[in-house]
Write a protein that binds this DNA or RNA. Structure first.
Lengths: 411, 411
DNA sequence: CAAGTTTTGTGTTCCTCCCGCTCAAACCAC
DNA sequence: GTGGTTTGAGCGGGAGGAACACAAAACTTG
C-alpha cells in the first residue's frame, strides 16, 4: 500500500512525539551528548531542544550533568544522558543449551544478567517459563522494580509469529505451537507487552546497536548452533517478513542429494554447516553436546589435522552459502554469530574465498565478513532493545502521564 | 543507525508536507475518491482536507468533479482526482530483447507507450540511449511537454548502482561499468533526475502498485528471461541493499557440481531455470531466441511430451529455489514474471510441490504463488512509479512554487 | 588580566498548521 | 415539505517549533 508509518496524517501532537523520540533515540543509540550535539543531530533549534529536554528531565527520563570541557571557545553545553533505571526492559533468551535473563536500562545499560545451563532434550514450555522467571531472582541487581519495566523481550531459537509470540516450531526445544508470549505474560502477571522474536532477528539488532555493526544499516547476521538462523537488517530496520518468520536461511535447499534435515526437507544448508555437520566432519557424533565442539576447536588449535580440515570444509560450505545471500541482500557487512563466530578466526580465508567465488563483483566489493562482537549475549541484548523500542518510539505516552501528575502535584 | 526518515526533527512545515504527501499518495495508489474518503483514509479533519485539497487544486495537481451519487443520505462529497498530465514520468526499459518507452501520469495513467525489438548481441550504450530517446517520438501521444516531466525512470536487465545509475554489469547487454544515468541525462538535456534501477526491483514495485500484489506488503517477485532476477518488497518498501544490488537471486549457488554461469561462478540457480535451461531441456540450443521459447510453450500445449517434461522439470527446480526464498523472506505472495509467468499455468503444481517440500510449515501456510499481471510491462511501469516518487513524497516542493507564482500574479 | 570572540542557554514573540465548532448546503426518507 | 444525515465552508483557538534578542560561560589575545 505505502511505506508504513507514512499512512496517517500528521498533526502537531505527532510532531512533538517524533521530536521527543528523535532525542531519546539519539541518546539511546549514540550515548550521552551535549545539548548542542543534539541540535546538530536532530536539526531542531536550541529553543526546541531546551523545551523537549526539559520535559524529559521533568519526566525523570533524562538528566543533565555539568558540561565536559573540550577546550573550545564558547559557552559549555551541559551533557544530556538518559536515566538508565527510569525505564528498563526485562529480556529473556531461550537457547539450545542455555537460558538467560537480563535487565537493561535506557541507553543500553546492562543492569543485571544471569545465565544457566539448559539440559538438552524436550522440556515442557511451562517449566522453561518457570526457570526463566526464577532467573530474575538470581540477578546480581535483584528483581527490577515492576513499575519501571516497560516491556519484556524474549529471544527463542525457533520460528516465532511476532504478532502474539506464538512459537510455531522450535526443533531444538522440542516445541510446536507453544504460545510462549501468552504463557510468559500470564506467569509474570505484569500488564506490559511481552515481545517474542527469533534469536537471530534479535542478534542482528543487538550487533547493530551495540556490537560489530554499529552505524551500518544493511547487515546480514548468520547465527549457527545446532540449527542455523539468519537476521537481516534492511536500511536500518529488521526484516521480519509478513508474520515474523523471515530469516530462516538455515533451511534454504543447497544440495538436492543431501541429508534429510530436522525440518523434514532434503539438503537444507543447515545440514551442511550446523554444529552437527562440523562434529561429523571431525569424526564425532552429530548430536554431541557443546563440550564436544569446544574439543574440536581446541584440537584444531593444537594442530589436529582432522579438526582443522573439518573447520576448513565447514567454512567453505558456509562461504558459498553466504555468497548467495550476499547476492540476495547486498549487505555492507556479514556478522557471524554462534559457532560461526568461533569458526571465523580459523577459517576466514576459506569462508572469504568461497564467498568471493559465488558473488557478483559489485556486491562483493562492498561487503565485509566479521565475527559477532557480542557473542552469546547478542540475542538477549537484542531482546532488550526491542522491548525498549516502545519508549524510543513514543517517550511521551509512557512518561507524559507521570510528568503531568508531577505538574498537578506541584500546582 | 535508526529507521530512516525518522532521523531529523519534525516541524510544522514537515507536517504539511507529510499531509499533502498522504493525500497525493492515497489518490495515486487507490485512485480517485471523495473528500470524505480522504478524511477516513488519512485521519485528517475535513478542515485540513479542504485546505490541502484546495492547495493541490490551485497548483493544478488535483481536480474535483461532481460527487458520484451513491444513494446514501447526507450531502454528497465531491470526487477528488489527480490531474494525470500535471506531472508525468518518462520511463524507459532496456530488456534482453526489447526496448520500450512510456509516459505515465499521476495516478498511474498510461499516457503513451512504445516498444521495439532489440537485436541480441553487444551494442554500445550510447546507441541504445539514442534508440530509447527516439522511441519518444513514436509515442502515440507524442513527446511529453518537458516542463511537466518530473523525472525519468529506467529499468535495466543488469546490476545497477542506484545512487548514480551506473550499470555495473549487464551480461545480456554486454555492458560493464556503463554510466547509464549520466549518459541518458546528458542525451535528454532535461534538468531532472534520471533514476536507473534493476528491472526486477521495478517489476515488484509495479506489481505491488498496479498488478497482482496490490495491497500486499511482503512480496517476492522473480523474473526469468535469459537471466533470473528478483525484486523484494519488505513491509511495503523495495529492498535495495546497501547500493541497490540486492535481489540478484539468479546467482545463488544451488548446485556445487553444476554448470558454469555467465557470471563466472559454478551452479548458479540461473543456470538451472533461466531460459537457456528450459530450451536445453526441450532439446534446443541454450542461446536460441525468444521465438524458440514460444515454440516450446506451443509444443507443450499441443501435447509434446518433451516440451511438457522440460517445463515440468524447470518448474520443479524453480519451486525448490523458491522454497528457500520463502524461508528467507516470509513473503505473503510470490509473483512470477517473465518466462516464469508463462511457465506457471503449465507447471503450477510442480512449482508448488517442490516449494512446499522445501519450506517450513509456517511461512508455507501464508504464501501464494501467482503469475505476474503486468507481464513484460512491469519493469517499465515500475520505472514510472519510482520516477513519480518525488512528487508523491513531497508535492509541495515541486508545485508549491508554481502555486505561489499564481498567487502573486492574482494579487 | 581585561577586553573581545565564540558558542550556547534563556526567554519572548511570531508563524505555521491543524483541530473544533458552528452554520449552511445537499442528499435521503416519509 | 419536513426532518435526519452527511458533508463543505469559514472562523477562532491551541499546540508547537522557529526566529530573535540577550545573557552567560568558556576561550583568545594583547
Amino acid at each position: 500500500m505505502r511505506p508504513s508509518g507514512m499512512d496517517l496524517g500528521q498533526r502537531s501532537e505527532t510532531v512533538r512525539r517524533a521530536n521527543l523520540s528523535a532525542i531519546v533515540r539519539t541518546l539511546h543509540e549514540e550515548g550521552p551528548q551535549s545539548r548542542s550535539d543534539l541540535v546538530t543531530r536532530t536539526g531542531l533549534t536550541r529553543s526546541a531542544i531546551r523545551v523537549l529536554v526539559g520535559e524529559l528531565k521533568a519526566a525523570g527520563l533524562a538528566s543533565e550533568d555539568r558540561a565536559v570541557r573540550h577546550g573550545r571557545p564558547g559557552r559549555p553545553s551541559p551533557e544530556v544522558s538518559l536515566v538508565a533505571r527510569a525505564a528498563v526492559a526485562v529480556a529473556f533468551s531461550i537457547g539450545v543449551d542455555t537460558l538467560a535473563a537480563a535487565v537493561v536500562g535506557m541507553g543500553g545499560t546492562l543492569l543485571g544478567l544471569s545465565r544457566t545451563d539448559r539440559p538438552r532434550g524436550h522440556k515442557v514450555a511451562s517449566a522453561v517459563v518457570d526457570d526463566l522467571v526464577s532467573l530474575l531472582d538470581h540477578l546480581p541487581s535483584g528483581r527490577p522494580e515492576p513499575e519501571t519495566v516497560v516491556a519484556v523481550g524474549v529471544a527463542v531459537a525457533g520460528v516465532v509469529r511476532s504478532r502474539d509470540g506464538l512459537v510455531e516450531t522450535a526443533p531444538n526445544l522440542g516445541w510446536t505451537g507453544v504460545p510462549l508470549g501468552a504463557l510468559l505474560a500470564a506467569r509474570l502477571g505484569w500488564s506490559i507487552p511481552v515481545v517474542v522474536r527469533n534469536e537471530s532477528d534479535l542478534g542482528v539488532l543487538a550487533e547493530h546497536r551495540r556490537g560489530a555493526a554499529v552505524g551500518i544499516d544493511d547487515v546480514l547476521y548468520v547465527h549457527g548452533e545446532v540449527g542455523v538462523g539468519g537476521g537481516v537488517l534492511v536500511d536500518g530496520r529488521p526484516m521480519a517478513g509478513a508474520a515474523g518468520y523471515a530469516g530462516e536461511i538455515g533451511h534454504v535447499p543447497v544440495d538436492a542429494s543431501g541429508l534429510r534435515c530436522r525440518c523434514g526437507a532434503i539438503g537444507c544448508w543447515e545440514t551442511q554447516i550446523g554444529a552437527g555437520a562440523l562434529l561429523a566432519r571431525a569424526g564425532l557424533p552429530r548430536d554431541a553436546g557443546p563440550d564436544a565442539l569446544d574439543d574440536v576447536f581446541a584440537a584444531a588449535e593444537a594442530g589436529d589435522v582432522v579438526a582443522q580440515a573439518a573447520i576448513e570444509t565447514t567454512g567453505r560450505t558456509l562461504g558459498s552459502g553466504l555468497g548467495g545471500l550476499v547476492n540476495t541482500f547486498n549487505p555492507r557487512m556479514v556478522v557471524l554469530g554462534g559457532i560461526f563466530g568461533r569458526l571465523h578466526p580459523h577459517a576466514h580465508q576459506a569462508i572469504w574465498e568461497e564467498l568471493a567465488r559465488h558473488t557478483l563483483p559489485a556486491p562483493r566489493a562492498m561487503v565485509r565478513v566479521v565475527p559477532a562482537k557480542l557473542g552469546v549475549d547478542a540475542p538477549l541484548l537484542g531482546a532488550a532493545e526491542v522491548a525498549l523500542e516502545s519508549v524510543l518510539a513514543d517517550p511521551a505516552t509512557r512518561f507524559g502521564h507521570r510528568a503531568r501528575v508531577a505538574q498537578l502535584a506541584s500546582a
